[in-house]
Design a protein around this nucleic acid. Structure first.
Length: 300
DNA sequence: AATCATCCCAACCGCAAGCAC
DNA sequence: AGTGCTTGCGGTTGGGATGAT
């Protein structure tokens, strides 16, 4: 397979291309016995003529025991669509919400299947940014109810993010270690995010924590660990509000919370405004065409 | 049956972040 | 603080499978 530029492993005798069953077996056996350790040195220890990167990829995307194979369920599909609307092409973050699915698999599925299904949605599919069309007039023409909800969510997210940015610039004393690293995920984890997911209804397995993956890519590094994190991560999601409450109380006690009050209140007011919007009937979202009035709604 | 076109997915690459020194 | 190494992520590619002619 010609890949054009310099190889990641220029060493002579390093195999490339499709893996043989023997190589697979050697890799699985080695990791079973020793863990992967350093990927760079693994091939040598496992007796494989591959570069570490290739071994890692093979393990993560194919050989891990927890890999779920077979077609995507409708629940998984809707989760992908929702999360892609929020996160854009952050496949690893999306994959963290779909146990047993890999970022590569989801990326392929999006590019080959879902992309085709959303041709007129206003979604800038394939973009590297969270998909969002500034041309709201195209949005309200979206036909399917589920797509309309997606569009509602998308607009809510964008507007909320803009507000969060403005607020955070005013609240520069807010400790970054306490704030969520990603506004999208923060919104997703909020009450309104849950409301949105409820609209899609019964999307099992969706409400797990995005925090672990999105804020720390390290969790992907070991399958055993990452699976455990994925499975237990839901508590982090479910308790996010509670944690915010706790940390805020602590700050009140030590007298550092003053500047953060505005931020905290903003989260609540943002949620309620967005909840209000999501409660609207489909015919009532025309105001999304007018961002000024939408912002006024939020401000009110 | 043979050829061509398209689709799907495993595997590759470069880049950037994180970490250790 | 600067540097080098390792790892993980996202974009891209190529080959096999499948469908159409």
């Amino acid at each position: 397979m010609k890949m054009g530029k310099a190889l990641c492993c220029d060493k002579q005798g390093v195999r490339r291309g499709a893996w043989t069953p023997e190589e697979d077996e050697a890799l699985v056996e080695y990791i079973k016995m020793n863990g992967h350790g350093s990927w760079r040195t693994l091939p040598m220890h496992a007796g494989l003529l591959r570069c570490g990167k290739s071994c890692r990829l093979r393990w993560i995307n194919y050989l891990r025991p927890d890999i779920k194979r077979g077609p995507f369920t409708t629940e998984e599909e809707s989760t992908i669509v929702q999360l892609h609307g929020m996160l854009g092409n952050r496949w690893a973050a999306i994959a963290s919400q779909l146990p047993g699915r890999t970022d590569n698999e989801i990326k392929n599925y999006w590019n080959t299947q879902l992309k085709k299904q959303l041709p007129h949605s206003g979604h800038s599919v394939g973009s590297q940014q969270p998909s969002f069309s500034p041309d709201h007039s195209t949005i309200v023409k979206t036909e399917s109810p589920s797509m309309r909800h997606m569009v509602q969510w998308e607009n809510a997210r964008v507007e909320a993010e803009a507000r969060l940015s403005m607020e955070s610039s005013l609240l520069n004393s807010w400790s970054t270690s306490e704030s969520h690293p990603d506004h999208f995920l923060q919104l997703w984890h909020s009450e309104v995010g849950q409301s949105f997911r409820a609209i899609k209804g019964k999307g099992g397995g969706v409400c797990q924590s995005l925090v672990s993956q999105a804020s720390s890519s390290k969790l992907e590094s070991s399958s055993d660990v990452s699976v455990q994190d994925k499975n237990t991560g839901s508590s982090a999601f479910a308790n996010m509000k509670q944690e915010q409450d706790s940390s805020y109380k602590l700050k009140l006690e030590d007298g550092t919370a003053e500047s953060e009050l505005g931020y905290y209140e903003f989260l609540d007011s943002s949620d309620s405004a967005l909840n209000h919007m999501l409660d609207m009937n489909d015919g009532e979202i025309g105001f999304l065409c007018e961002s000024d009035s939408f912002l006024n709604t939020l401000d009110g």
